[in-house]
C-alpha cells in the first residue's frame, strides 16, 4: 500500500509542475494579446483615462509581465489585495484575480459556477454510462437481431442531433406541451436546500447531455464487447461450461471496461470545462456560461482562471484513470 501512496504523491508532484507550466503559458498568451487589460476593465463606452490608469495600478497591469505572473502565483497561495487603503478589495486565497466587469473575485465566481457544472457533468455521466453500457452490451449480445437494429437507430439519432436541439425539444414537449414537469425556476439552487427543485432543474439538462453521449457509448461498448468476445480466454470460459450471462457480465465486460473507463474519464474532464450549449439552453449558471461571458467581455482574469481549471481537471483525471486502470488490470498493479 505504501507503493500506492508513493505513486500518488509522485504523480501529484508532477501534476503540480504541469499546472505551473500551464499557468505560465496561459499568462504568457494573454500578456501578448493586442488588448490593454486596463482599458477593458473600464467597460465598453469608457474613455476616461483617469479611471483606466487607476485600475491599471490597482490590478498591477503597470508592472512588467513576469512580475505580474509572480504576483498572480503568490495570490494563489496567500490571497491578494487590489488597490490600497479603504478602497482596497481583498480576494482571499486562492485568489485567481479580480473581475472588473463582474465586480467580484474570480475565485468566488468560480465557486458559484463549479457546483453547477459538477452536478450537470456527474449526473449526465452516470446516466449515459448506465444507458450506453447497458445498450452496448445488449446489442453486442443480440448482434444482428431486432434489439441491435433498434439500438443502431438510437445511435444514429443520438449522434446526429445537436444538444441545443434536443434540449429545446425536451423543454417544448416535456414542460410546455405535455406538462410532465413543472417549469424550472431560473438559475440554480443547491440540492441541500431544495432537493426536488434541484432535481427538477437538472433532470432535463442531464437527459440532453446524456442522450448524445449515450449514443456514442452504445456504439463504442458494442464494438469493445464484440472484440473482447473473440479473445482466447472467452473461449476458455465457454469451454469450462460457464453460463453466457457470467461470461458476458464477468469475463467480457471486465476486459472491455478499461478502454470504456478511459473514454469516460476524458469526456467527463471535457465536460467540466463547461457544457456551453446545454448550460445556455437551460439557463444554468455553470462554468461554460462563465467562460463564454468572459470571452465575449474580454474578462481576462476569468479566462485565465477557467483555462487553468480545465487543465487541472484533465491532468487530475488522467491520474484518476491510471488508478482505475490499476484497479481493473492486475498486470499494471503487481
Amino acid at each position: 500500500m505504501s507503493g500506492l501512496l508513493a505513486y500518488v504523491s509522485r504523480r501529484l508532484a508532477v501534476t503540480f509542475l504541469i499546472l505551473l507550466a500551464v499557468s505560465f503559458a496561459v499568462y504568457l498568451i494573454f500578456a501578448f494579446l493586442p488588448f490593454d487589460p486596463a482599458t477593458l476593465t473600464c467597460g465598453k463606452n469608457c474613455n476616461d483615462p483617469g479611471i483606466i490608469e487607476a485600475n491599471r495600478i490597482r490590478l498591477g497591469y503597470d508592472k512588467p509581465f513576469y512580475e505580474q505572473y509572480w504576483v498572480f502565483i503568490v495570490g494563489l497561495f496567500a490571497g491578494r489585495n487590489y488597490g490600497e487603503g479603504a478602497a482596497a478589495i481583498h480576494c482571499a486565497a486562492p485568489s485567481f484575480g479580480y473581475s472588473f466587469q463582474q465586480h467580484a473575485c474570480v475565485t468566488d465566481l468560480i465557486g458559484e459556477a463549479l457546483p453547477v457544472t459538477l452536478a450537470l457533468a456527474i449526473g449526465a455521466l452516470v446516466l449515459w454510462l448506465i444507458l450506453g453500457i447497458g445498450l452496448g452490451v445488449l446489442s453486442a449480445r443480440f448482434r444482428g437481431r431486432v434489439l441491435d437494429t433498434a439500438s443502431t437507430i438510437f445511435v444514429l439519432i443520438g449522434t446526429s442531433l445537436p444538444t441545443f436541439l434536443t434540449g429545446l425539444m425536451l423543454i417544448i414537449f416535456v414542460v410546455i406541451k405535455w406538462h410532465l414537469l413543472p417549469f424550472p425556476a431560473g438559475g440554480y439552487s443547491s440540492p441541500f436546500e431544495d432537493f426536488p427543485g434541484w432535481l427538477n432543474t437538472m433532470i432535463l439538462p442531464w437527459i440532453t447531455l446524456a442522450f448524445a453521449y449515450a449514443a456514442l457509448y452504445t456504439r463504442f461498448v458494442r464494438s469493445q464487447v464484440i472484440e473482447t468476445s473473440t479473445e482466447d480466454y472467452i473461449r476458455t470460459a465457454r469451454a469450462k461450461g460457464l453460463s453466457e450471462g457470467l461470461i458476458l457480465g464477468k469475463h467480457t465486460l471486465r476486459a472491455a471496461l478499461a478502454p470504456i473507463a478511459t473514454m469516460a474519464g476524458l469526456d467527463f474532464a471535457g465536460l467540466m470545462g463547461g457544457a456551453i450549449l446545454t448550460e445556455a439552453v437551460f439557463n444554468l449558471p455553470g462554468l461554460g456560461r462563465l467562460s463564454l461571458g468572459a470571452v465575449l467581455d474580454y474578462d481576462l482574469p476569468i479566462i485565465v482562471a477557467t483555462t487553468l481549471l480545465a487543465a487541472a481537471i484533465v491532468v487530475i483525471m488522467n491520474l484518476v484513470l491510471d488508478l482505475v486502470y490499476a484497479f481493473i488490470d492486475p498486470r499494471v498493479r503487481v
Partner: peptide
Amino acid sequence: IRGKDIAMIFQDPMSALHPFY
C-alpha cells in the same frame, strides 16, 4: 457437458487465461 464430461486445453496458455482474474 462442457468442462464436466469434456474439458479442453489450448495452445497458448497466456491468452487462454483471463489476465484480470
